[in-house]
């Protein structure tokens, strides 16, 4: 499981923002839909846009622009002043909004722990499970080729 440190500067926050972005929308909605009603002010309503994705020549060399991807961003402020941000690939406005609200809640002393336990940990667990399942299917296709001496059949 991906360790989520409590508010360890940017590291902890980047870790939960990662989980919120990678989460399948159906999972996120199922686990966290009720948090969307947390009173908040929209600093930036959900907005769809583009991020230019980059690769590296020979995978480790100089960068180049590969092509764009859609992403949706959103920013909110809670009553106690906590600001939440989200950038999520794709065009799901509800996903970006809920992720921003959760990002704000996770920074608060009162609700942070609860949201970590009820949303982030289970999402991280599901991601790990689905990654493990995919890796096991790929591993089943691991192949050993034998080279034959020319003339052998």
């Amino acid at each position: 499981m991906i360790p989520i440190a409590p508010n360890e500067g940017h590291t902890g926050r980047a870790a939960w923002m990662r989980i919120l972005s990678l989460a399948d929308w159906r999972d996120l909605e199922q686990l966290a839909a009720h948090y969307a009603a947390t009173p908040h002010v929209m600093l930036r309503p959900p907005e769809a846009g583009l991020v230019m994705l980059r690769g590296r020549m020979g995978s480790t060399g100089a960068a180049f622009n590969l092509g764009e991807a859609t992403a949706t961003r959103c920013a909110v402020r809670l009553a106690d002043g906590a600001e939440g941000h989200a950038y999520v690939m794709g065009r799901n406005a509800a996903h970006a909004k809920l992720a921003a609200v959760l990002d704000a809640l996770l920074q608060t002393a009162e609700r942070g722990q609860e949201v970590r336990e009820r949303v982030i940990d289970p999402l991280a667990h599901r991601l790990t499970q689905s990654n493990v399942a995919a890796a096991a299917k790929a591993a089943a296709t691991k192949v050993d080729f034998f080279t034959m001496v020319r003339g052998d059949v």
Partner: peptide, 11 residues
């Protein structure tokens, strides 16, 4: 039709 947010870190 979409605004550009910026550039990603290299994959």
């Amino acid at each position: 039709t979409l605004p550009r947010f910026g550039y990603s870190e290299p994959l």
